[in-house]
Each structure stands twice: as C-alpha cells, then as structure tokens.
Design a protein around this nucleic acid. Structure first.
Lengths: 140, 140
DNA sequence: CTGTATCCTTCAGGATACTG
DNA sequence: CAGTATCCTGAAGGATACAG
C-alpha cells in the first residue's frame, strides 16, 4: 500500500464543493499547520529572511525553546530553509521556501475570514452570554 | 475605543497579497477555529444536521466532554445552531448556520492544501530525518 | 438520550542554565 | 549569537458517575 493510495483517498474524500472531509485529514492538517507558532512564523518569515534572535524579539511571547522546536519542524517539512553563515559570531537566517509560500495562501484565507468576522463573533458571544445569564437569573 | 477600531486595524494589517499579518490576529484565529474538534465538527455538520450521540459516534475519538464543550463554543460563536425537540426521549440536533458555512470555505482551502501536499511533506521529512541520521552516525 | 460535574493524567510549553 | 538540555507548571482533555 503506497501512500499515493492514501493521498488519493483523501483527495477523493474532499472532492465536492463543501467539507465532505474525512475527519482524519483535518487532524493531519491541524497537527501540521494548525499550531499557533508555526503559522505566526510562516507569516513573519513571509516578509523576508530573519535571524534567530530577531524572530525571538519579533514574535510576541515565544520562548527560545518553542522557537527552536517550531523552526526545526518547519524546516523538516520543507516549509522553511535554514541558512548558516559560518562567521564569528555565528549567524543564521531563516526564510520560507516556495513550498512554504504555497501554504501561506490558504492560511491567509483563514486569517482574512477571522479578521472579517471577529466583530460578528464578538457580537454573537455577547448575545449568547447575555441570553444565558437571563436564563439563569430571570427564569419566570 | 470600539472593537471596530481593532477589527479595522486587523484588516489593514492583512491588506496586501501575502501574509503581512499582525501575529496577534493569527492568534485569535487559531484560538477560535484552530482547534481540532471545532474544525472536525464544522466539517461533519457541513453534510447535514446531526444528533449528539451521532456526532459522538462519528467523530473519531472525541469524548463526551469535548463534544459538549466544542458544540457550546460553536453555538456561542453563532457557527452552529442547536435544535431541541421536546420529545421523550429527548432529542437534539445540531446544524451549521450560514455563518458557519462561510467558515467552511477557508477551512476547505486549508484542508485541500494538506491533502494535496501531505505526500510532499512526508517525503521532506524522510529526507530530513535521513540526513540528520547521517550527520550523527556517519560524520567522517 | 442529552448532557453536566469531578477527578486524574498527560503533555505542551515557559524559565533557566549550559555549550559551541 | 544560536542553540540544546533540564526542570516544572498549568491547562487540555479523557474516563466516569450522576442528573433531567
């Protein structure tokens, strides 16, 4: 059984126009690109190559550890390239690969959705919470 | 300071063609729709309304607890509607709202990317791991 | 059947100290 | 500077028992 077969099955399961997905596929997506730091780094590096410490400063709240781990993961998947300049002091730059850029697009779509709709979500939540409050408080 | 302002800022930060994002935006996206179960449920419900137990059986590995929590979250955000039929035994169905469907699309894009490229990723990883193995084992 | 309330485990991820 | 190795905590999430 080649993975071709699986990829194929997966594609077929998506086939239609809507989300006719196999839940397993979604899982693999999220395990891959669904974590906060990966997306943020893909985004930041999309603007251009950056150095380790630079990323450490720029990404809001990332720890040294997570930066290393995430960059390694992205590199392993071929989404990011690591460029080592054997200088003193050592210098390393990271840049997204073309493959990495291809991921940026769907990510951007999702991001835009969130940006477009975060207002709506906020409103919905307020309404929901208010209703819930009344249900408890004001059940006549 | 209205949230309008923030949403606006967010949109502006996305503005361009590529991922010129504010990392904070991505964070909010992922907190919202980036978790495994939310996406899976949005996907499953995209096919049509389903009952609680039905979802429990269909979603692979979800616990009763997580199903409840996730559905509540989706309902709160207005992505899913809860339909209660006051029968005996009680019966509840969940269905995606139009708003929920608008989310399905970018999610689908991401899913398709993953389906299209999971083969590539697998290859990249194998290559990376092999190279790493050699570096350690075979450093002449 | 459709949940809610607890308990308990696991593990992602931060802080920190050390190395090349 | 660019990491790696270790420790430690909080929070996510499963299992389970109970309730409407």
């Amino acid at each position: 059984m080649s993975h071709q077969t699986e990829a194929d099955r997966v594609l077929r399961s998506l086939g239609g126009a809507c989300l006719e997905h196999d839940p397993d596929v979604l899982r693999s997506v999220l395990d891959r690109v669904g974590d906060k730091w990966s997306l943020i780094l893909i985004g930041l590096l999309g603007k251009g190559p950056m150095r380790f410490t630079e990323l450490l400063r720029t990404a809001p709240g990332i720890s040294r550890r997570m930066l290393t781990l995430t960059l390694r993961g992205l590199e392993r998947d071929g989404l990011v390239k690591r460029l080592i300049y054997p200088e003193i002091p050592p210098r390393v730059e990271y840049e997204v690969t073309p493959f990495g850029r291809s991921l940026s697009e769907p990510v951007l779509a999702l991001t835009r959705w969130a940006a477009d709709n975060q207002e709506t979500i906020r409103t919905n939540r307020r309404a929901f919470d208010e209703a819930a409050g009344l249900d408890i408080d004001d059940l006549d």
